[in-house]
């Protein structure tokens, strides 16, 4: 199995290689943090610019921010419910914004111009650590939401229609973060890989439609992650009508 003889300089595939930083006894993936800082910086910059001068007649970036706020509020209100959505809007909104900007940043920013000693920059959400972190946060969030709102009555939810559901609901608690994280990770990584493979085969023009499809999928994945997080939290805080 020899490497391809016509190795092109601008389209090499690197999968599963990381830039390791040593942090005490632990190792972390440097490239993920670098790109996530870029993403967070961009987010904060837009937010700070947009909220610097709030006016009653919005203009410029404030319009965008208010549109986003409205959109996220609609998601949170629809899935969490009128009573509790205010507490969880920042969490849902941050998940959506972080994932969305990460996905689009991974697709739109020419990361290849930055050379790292090992690994390559890309969407932070294309790393399994990030997506599992986000999914575990969602799990913690819905447990916290249910317990803080209902106390130990939250566990009635596990036997809600019938006690037969108990094992399924317990298994669900594990499959929820699993499917959340792997869905996001798989989609983003698949997008990057498909684009990379196409660019590897035909470097010009041909990858463009796939890139646009990737942008679309990325946006939908961010929406789905936020929607599902809101749905899980809403399920946890939902009061049964006895």
């Amino acid at each position: 199995m020899a490497p391809l003889p016509f190795a092109l300089p601008f389209a090499a595939l690197e999968v599963g290689q990381h830039l390791y930083w040593q942090l005490g006894h632990y190792k972390i993936h440097g490239q993920v943090f670098l790109s996530s800082w870029v993403v967070i910086g961009a987010l904060l910059a837009v937010v700070v610019i947009g909220t610097r001068r709030m006016e009653r007649d919005p203009s410029g970036v404030q319009n965008l921010l208010e549109f986003l706020w409205d959109y996220l509020r609609d998601i949170a209100r629809e899935y969490i419910g009128e009573k509790a959505y205010r507490d969880w809007l920042p969490f849902i909104g941050t998940l959506f914004l972080f994932i969305f900007v990460s996905n689009w940043g991974g697709a739109l920013i020419p990361w290849k111009l930055v050379h790292l000693p090992s690994g390559e920059l890309g969407a932070p959400t294309a790393d399994i650590n990030t997506t599992i972190a986000l999914a575990l946060l969602v799990s913690l969030a819905y447990f916290y939401a249910g317990l803080s709102r209902k106390g130990f009555r939250y566990f009635e939810y596990y036997v809600e229609p019938t006690p037969i559901m108990l094992p399924f609901k317990i298994v669900e608690d594990f499959t929820k973060p699993l499917s959340l994280s792997f869905r996001l990770f798989g989609n983003i990584l698949a997008d990057e890989l498909v684009v990379a493979v196409l660019a590897f085969l035909v470097p010009l023009v041909v990858p463009l439609p796939v890139m646009f499809l990737g942008l679309f999928t990325s946006a939908i994945q961010a929406l789905i992650f936020a929607t599902l997080a809101a749905y899980y939290i809403g399920e946890a805080v939902h009061e049964e009508h006895h």
């Binding site: 499917s179 792997f182 869905r183 990770f185 798989g186 989609n187 698949a190």
Partner: peptide, 8 residues
């Protein structure tokens, strides 16, 4: 996402 699980 089911397909994506296969891909994973």
């Amino acid at each position: 996402s089911l397909t994506i699980y296969g891909l994973v």
